[in-house]
Nucleic acid binder design. Structure first.
Lengths: 161, 161
DNA sequence: CATGAAAAAGCGGCCGC
DNA sequence: GCGGCCGCTTTTTCATG
């Protein structure tokens, strides 16, 4: 892992999004394009960025190797695909000495989409997705059986964007 | 990566409930594969599902036309790409008569990734991503100038998955 | 880093079952 | 609706300047 400089994070109005070392404006353009269309071809990227195909290719490969592009995924409408209920689950450990084990244990539980460690009262926030309210209850029970935590769920009524 | 469907008693999401979802097990398999690898080819999907290429093709096309597959996107590590700070922002309207306008007004603000309407005390939860702490402050100020709300931010320390 | 080639692969439409 | 075949197009890759 590259240890980066402790450059002051004062905002500079001329670089709105780009700041990480080694990422220039064209890399950002490529990332944005690939985020909007993960199946964009190298020639599309080249044309949009004003680069040649081979230059675009080497940039994409570097972005992939550096882990900035983690992969590619289909964007799925879960509401239409059989998992209509999403919720945030705030997770507070009952035993803080074992806090660090929690994400690993939660990782393999079906229905838990994401796990964030957060600053504040609860230690973790989960994003979960289930097929029905009763499945949500099942999932919460499973979480409680898996790790010693208390939970508080906030059902998502609608995803605007 | 785990997927969904803790198959249990009460709810069956995979039955052809005629009106809404004609999604069978093979469609689910295709969705899972495409979610894990949005660049999977039709022949890969066919081989993995036991279908022929043309059958897989027609299924994918139907899933796309029905909007179940919304599109394809690169999965980007924002922490490495120059937007290291993510946070949940709970949004509580000060004026509930104009609550419904809020998501639309927030939609175009740079840095707001997602907007969820939730059941519970705050009306909305935002997922935001910014380049620095001061940019987060800027973003919150902008939100307050844009819509009459109070906010409460929870910074994400780490995204486990 | 741009250009140009060759090679490979995916895609889409046809057929019959 | 599914499976297999074939031709076309596109993309990728690798050479070179």
């Amino acid at each position: 892992m590259s240890v980066q400089n402790n450059r002051d994070d004062k905002d500079r109005a001329d670089e709105p999004v780009t700041s990480s070392a080694g990422i220039d404006a064209k890399d950002v353009a490529i990332l944005n394009l690939l985020e909007a269309d993960g199946r964009a071809t190298l020639s599309q990227l080249a044309k949009a960025t004003g680069l040649s195909v081979s230059a675009a290719q080497s940039r994409v490969q570097k972005l992939e190797k550096r882990g900035i592009i983690r992969g590619y995924a289909a964007v799925i409408d879960y509401e239409r695909s059989g998992l209509p209920i999403s919720a945030f689950v705030s997770v507070t450990p009952l035993d803080y000495t074992r806090e660090s084990e929690i994400p690993n244990k939660l990782h393999d539980i079906d229905g838990i989409i994401s796990c964030y460690s957060v600053a504040g009262a609860p230690s973790f926030v989960l994003l979960v997705r289930v097929a029905s309210p009763s499945k949500l209850e099942e999932l919460l029970n499973l979480i409680h059986r898996t790790v010693p935590v208390s939970t508080e769920s906030t059902v998502i009524l609608k995803t605007y964007f």
